[in-house]
C-alpha cells in the first residue's frame, strides 16, 4: 500500500466548513476522481484516510494535513492535481508527498495563525499584546459540551505580535469582503504562534486572553487563518514544513 500525505486549505467562504463536512466532501472527491483507495477490512469497509489537527469551523487555513492509503501506486503530484480539480474552489489540495517517515502527527508541534481584527486600532492592539505577553499565565474559559473549562492561554503562546499595516493586507483569500478594505478604517493584524498542547489553546482563547488582560474587544468577529503548522523552531519562533522530511527521503529524481 502506498501512502500519501496531503496539505489542503480552507479558504474564503468555505472556512465555514466543519471538519465532518470536509471529510464527507473529501471522500466523495476520492470517488469522483476514481482514486484507487485502500479500504479498511471489516463489515463496512472505509477508505483509508487519516486527518490531523483540523482547524475549527469558521477558521480559514492554509495548512491542514491528511494522509491516504492507496491500493495502487500513483504519482503524488498527479494525484494532487486530480483531487484538487474535484474539490470546490476554496478547498484546495496544495501539496502532496509520498510517505517515507513515521510520526507525522508528533511533528505538528505548533501552528502559526493570522488574526485579522477589523475595527481595532493598531496601537490599541499592540498595548494589549504587550500586556498579555507580560503575564506568566492568563486564565481563560471556554464553554464546551461538558461545561465551562478554565485553563491557561499564555503558556502555549510562543510568539504574538502586531504586524505592520499594509495595503490590501495580503489576506485576500477569495472572500468578497470589499467593505473593510476601506481606506481609513482601522484594522489590526496579529501573528500568533501557539504550541500544540493539552488542553489545546486556540486563537479564540488567545483573544479571550487579550480581553481578560487588556479589555481588547473587537467590534466584529476576528477573521482567523492558520498559515502553517509543523515543527517549531524555538530560536526564530517560526513554524517549518512538516513534509520536508518526507521530501528529503524521496529517491533522487522524484
Amino acid at each position: 500500500m502506498q501512502r500519501i500525505r496531503l496539505r489542503y486549505t480552507k479558504r474564503g467562504r468555505l472556512r465555514f466548513t466543519s471538519h465532518r463536512d470536509f471529510q464527507r466532501a473529501f471522500e466523495r472527491a476520492l470517488r469522483r476522481s476514481a482514486v484507487p483507495m485502500a479500504y479498511s477490512a471489516g463489515f463496512t469497509p472505509h477508505p483509508k484516510v487519516s486527518y490531523a489537527n483540523a482547524a475549527p469551523t469558521g477558521v480559514a487555513s492554509e495548512a491542514e494535513y491528511l494522509e491516504i492509503g492507496l491500493a495502487e501506486a500513483r504519482d503524488p503530484e498527479e494525484l494532487r492535481a486530480q483531487l484538487d480539480e474535484s474539490l470546490p474552489p476554496g478547498l484546495d489540495i496544495v501539496d502532496a508527498v509520498e510517505v517515507r517517515t513515521a510520526n507525522f502527527v508528533e511533528r505538528l508541534e505548533a501552528s502559526e495563525w493570522q488574526l485579522r481584527l477589523a475595527g481595532v486600532d493598531r496601537d490599541e492592539a499592540a498595548r494589549a499584546v504587550a500586556a498579555f505577553l507580560a503575564e506568566e499565565a492568563v486564565e481563560v474559559q471556554r464553554t464546551t459540551k461538558n461545561g465551562v473549562r478554565v485553563f491557561d492561554a499564555r503558556g502555549a503562546v510562543s510568539a504574538l505580535q502586531v504586524l505592520p499595516s499594509q495595503v490590501g493586507d495580503g489576506n485576500d483569500t477569495g472572500t468578497e469582503r470589499a467593505d473593510d478594505v476601506r481606506p481609513g478604517s482601522p484594522c489590526a493584524i496579529l501573528r500568533l504562534v501557539v504550541r500544540h498542547a493539552t488542553p489545546a489553546v486556540r486563537p479564540d482563547d488567545v483573544l479571550s486572553g487579550l480581553r481578560a488582560t487588556a479589555d481588547l474587544a473587537p467590534p466584529v468577529p476576528a477573521e482567523v487563518t492558520r498559515l502553517a503548522q509543523g515543527p517549531l523552531d524555538e530560536e526564530t519562533g517560526t513554524v517549518t514544513d512538516p513534509l520536508a522530511l518526507d521530501r528529503a527521503a524521496a529517491p533522487a529524481g522524484r
Partner: peptide
C-alpha cells in the same frame, strides 16, 4: 454575502448558508 458573512460566526452550522 459581505453583510451575511459577518453574522455567520455567531450561528449554528454556518456552512448551510454559504452555497458553493
Amino acid at each position: 454575502f459581505p453583510r451575511l458573512e459577518a453574522l455567520l460566526p455567531h450561528v449554528q452550522k454556518p456552512i448551510q448558508y454559504v452555497g458553493g
